[in-house]
């Protein structure tokens, strides 16, 4: 009874902790933050764009770190973290490219330009994608963990070089423009709220991956002990949720 109450309370608190800042951040970003003079409303894309770009980079660091930990320890628990970071990071970097492209279209009049940060983000996205492809193409968990881990570490080493290489072409991306205090507060709140929100998604995906792998082991175990009955007339029908 006590335990249940505590768990419900915790769940509610987590949800509130995620939802409230998110709503506040959205409200600030969409309505209350002052409108920028030259670009107008479009500048409001900044808040989600910067937040997701930050998460894309953070995700890569987490993925690389956990990949390294896996290679050193050979413990699949690290790979689950790395895998979850891979998916969330891929999502965030895709969103960055998407929002950035929309913003660039109305601010610069082009969907895409070969500008240092855009190119870097694109390479980051490609690295995320290649790790995802590796993971999805292999069934053996340790093998895919090993390969994806090594790829993630290589990607982490690669990123500074990509940044250097692309920075030496001239760019039009603003580095860190002057902002009004209200805009700064909005941006900060957005970054925090998004970090918490995607952190929750990350944790969810991670726990899902853990139970998936446990279930997989259990299934192998059970299949060995109780092979499916073939000779009997009454075999077990494949189950779907509709059966309940």
């Amino acid at each position: 009874m006590q335990n249940k109450f505590v768990s419900i309370l915790c769940g509610g608190l987590t949800r509130a902790a995620v939802t409230c800042p998110l709503i506040a951040a959205l409200g600030l970003a969409m309505v209350f933050a002052p409108t920028e003079e030259t670009m107008g409303q479009v500048q409001r894309i900044l808040y989600i764009h910067v937040a997701s770009a930050w998460l894309g980079l953070l995700g890569f660091a987490v993925m690389g770190g956990c990949g390294l930990a896996y290679l050193l320890r050979r413990n699949l628990a690290w790979d689950h973290w790395s895998r979850a970071a891979n998916e969330i990071g891929w999502l965030c970097s895709s969103l960055t490219l998407l929002t950035g492209s929309l913003w660039a279209h109305s601010a610069w009049g082009t969907w895409w330009t070969w500008e240092p940060r855009l190119t870097t983000m694109f390479v980051l996205w490609a690295l995320y994608s290649s790790c995802l492809i590796v993971r999805s193409s292999m069934d053996e968990p340790h093998l895919s963990a090993r390969i994806a881990g090594a790829l993630a570490i290589l990607g982490l080493l690669d990123l500074p070089l990509v940044i250097m290489a692309t920075r030496w072409f001239r760019g039009i991306h603003p580095v860190s423009p002057e902002m009004e205090p209200m805009m700064q507060v909005t941006l900060l709140l957005n970054v925090i709220a998004f970090t918490v929100f995607f952190g929750l998604l990350f944790a969810r995906r991670h726990s899902q991956l853990v139970s998936e792998s446990l279930l997989h082991q259990l299934e192998i175990h059970v299949l060995a002990d109780h092979p499916p009955v073939v000779n009997e007339v009454r075999t077990i029908p494949p189950l779907s949720l509709e059966t309940f």
Partner: peptide, 25 residues
């Protein structure tokens, strides 16, 4: 890496390209 996976090298080119992007550039 690919040697361990026994999947052939069909994907090697597309995986290595983002990594060697700075070299190519």
């Amino acid at each position: 890496l690919w040697l361990c996976s026994r999947q052939g090298a069909s994907m090697l080119a597309c995986l290595a390209l983002p990594l060697v992007a700075p070299v190519i550039l």
